[in-house]
Amino acid sequence: MSQMRQVTTRPTERPSPRFTLNTDGGRHPLTNFLTVATLMLGIMAFVTGFIVDSHIVASWVGALGFWGGLYVQYISVTTAQRCLIIAGVVTSFVGMALGVAHGGFVPHV
Rank of each mutant, 00 (worst) to 15 (best):
L84P: 07
L21G: 06
G88A: 09
G26D: 01
W60G: 03
A63C: 06
T48P: 10
F105V: 02
L34T: 02
G42P: 14
G69C: 08
V72L: 07
I56S: 03
V77A: 08
I85E: 11
G95I: 02
F46S: 13
G62R: 04
M1H: 05
T35E: 06
T31K: 00
F50S: 12
G65M: 07
M4Q: 03
V61G: 00
Q73W: 14
Y71I: 15
H108S: 13
Q73A: 15
V7N: 05
T20S: 15
V90C: 06
S59R: 02
A37S: 13
F93L: 15
F66T: 10
W67F: 14
G68I: 08
A63R: 04
T23I: 12
F93T: 09
F50V: 03
T20G: 01
P29Q: 01
H55W: 08
A37I: 08
M40G: 11
G69M: 12
I75Y: 01
V77T: 12
G68M: 08
G99L: 04
T35M: 08
V52Y: 12
V72F: 09
V57S: 14
T12Q: 15
G26M: 02
M4V: 05
W67T: 12
R27Q: 03
R27G: 03
L84H: 13
M1N: 07
Q73F: 15
V109K: 08
M96G: 14
E13R: 15
F33D: 08
V106E: 11
F19E: 01
F46P: 03
M40I: 15
G42F: 06
T8L: 08
R18W: 05
I43M: 13
V109T: 07
S16A: 14
Q73K: 13
Q73I: 09
H55A: 03
V106M: 11
T12G: 02
V7L: 12
V47H: 02
G25I: 03
P17G: 02
I75W: 01
L39K: 00
S2D: 06
H102P: 05
A58V: 02
I86S: 02
V7G: 00
P11N: 14
G49S: 08
V89R: 11
F33T: 09
F19S: 03
G65Q: 10
N22P: 05
G26L: 01
I43P: 01
F33E: 06
V106R: 15
R18I: 13
Y71W: 14
I51Y: 01
C83V: 10
M4R: 00
Q81G: 03
L39N: 00
C83K: 13
R18M: 00
G25K: 10
A37W: 06
A58M: 05
T78M: 12
H102K: 14
T35L: 09
V52I: 10
R5Y: 01
E13F: 07
R5H: 03
F50W: 07
M40Y: 07
W60R: 07
V72S: 06
T78A: 11
G68T: 04
F66N: 05
M1G: 09
P11M: 10
V57W: 09
V57T: 15
Q81A: 01
T8K: 12
I75N: 06
G104F: 04
G103M: 11
M4D: 10
T8I: 12
F105C: 01
A63Y: 04
G65V: 06
Y71Q: 01
L21Q: 03
L30C: 00
A37E: 07
T35W: 07
G26T: 10
P107Q: 09
V72A: 13
A58C: 09
A97K: 00
